[in-house]
Design a protein around this nucleic acid. Structure first.
Lengths: 190, 190
DNA sequence: AAGTCATTTTGAACGTCGTACAAAACTGAC
DNA sequence: GTCAGTTTTGTACGACGTTCAAAATGACTT
């Protein structure tokens, strides 16, 4: 009933995705500094006020961007883990998890969200699930590889990946994606 | 010559430390949200403008707080690593590194600094040294424990500690300091 | 065709933050 | 007591997220 009525008069055909995509692109092109509601609104040809009307707050908008990108990654992960030896699939998993370069939008987002979660208390409740997904997939992989304590080990490896990722996006000296992969491999079975 | 002349007329006897300590306390009591120049100024009985005059910018002020707290920790670390078996000293190292509780000021600071570093480019140059200190101390410990590749392993363990610490300060479900220590121990030589 | 009504969209205003700047207060030296 | 340089303050600015009331829009009724 209201489903049809509430979605009238929209300026954009698929406003949600349009905005989220553009936020992602903006993040990739200009970084965190330029990810403002005004700039984002300009890019999708609306006002900042409208973005607020639509998403409620910037916190919620950012959370939606994460949700959207994580659902993309969920698919990519499923595809990457569908074929190949356990070893290769583990490598693919890490490649998906780690930032592809300093300034990787995914990690920019997380780093922006963490202090926000510490201020708001409403943010922190939802995003914990995303980590859990990654960990579950990794645990399954590890189990398949014949590792004991797959769950705990998955937690451990993901924490390591987090630490390495932060160092990588921040561009800490003397650490490359290649190094990171070597560190992770040291924690993998056999 | 100018050393005496430039340090006249100070309202506070040791204004620097006074401010840094109060920032730390404010952080511990109220968290990131209330760590504003106005509030901090109120606490040390000055104006926000004066804090800027003194520290240059909020970024720089935060960096000074980190510098100050890291120098405290440097001493604490030296004391903690002076006596005891290698095993105990490794444990003490981790206890110092990891957040003591959700809302640990040290980690609040880092989480606040990371997005700032991503925006400013001038911040990121200096704070990389702090990690390096921790890693050097840990590497020495590992070497003493007879581990091969002490440097690489130290990097790995510190990255793990980073990941675990972030999860801990953010209060992620199902992770305690005790768990964290267990994860780290899995990476230690024995 | 005109009118209604809920929804969408906008523009202006607000509060807060970090910051810039000029004026004022202070202090030691002459 | 005046002067010069430092310290301290108050005020103002711009940017940001946010709020709010008003306007625009388009589907439905008559």
């Amino acid at each position: 009933m209201t489903v049809e009525r509430t979605r009238r008069n929209r300026k954009l055909d698929r406003p949600r995705e349009r905005v989220l995509e553009e936020a992602w692109r903006l993040l990739a092109e200009k970084g965190l500094a330029d990810l403002t509601l005004a700039e984002l609104g300009r890019r999708v040809d609306t006002s900042a006020s409208h973005l607020l009307y639509y998403f409620g707050s910037k916190d919620d908008l950012l959370l939606e961007v994460v949700r959207w990108s994580e659902s993309q990654l969920r698919e990519a992960r499923a595809a990457a883990l569908a074929t190949g030896s356990v070893q290769t699939r583990l490598r693919r998993f890490c490649e998906l998890y780690l930032p592809s370069e300093p300034g990787d939008p995914r990690w920019l987002l997380w780093i922006e969200l963490w202090p926000r979660a510490l201020r708001s208390t409403s943010l922190g409740e939802h995003y914990g699930d995303f980590d859990a997904e990654w960990r579950a997939d990794l645990a399954a992989l590890l189990e398949e590889a014949g590792a004991r304590d797959a769950t705990a080990r998955a937690r451990r490896i993901c924490a390591l990946l987090d630490g390495l990722s932060v160092a990588l996006v921040l561009g800490e000296d003397g650490l490359t994606v290649k190094d990171a992969w070597k560190h992770v491999r040291a924690l993998l079975p056999d």
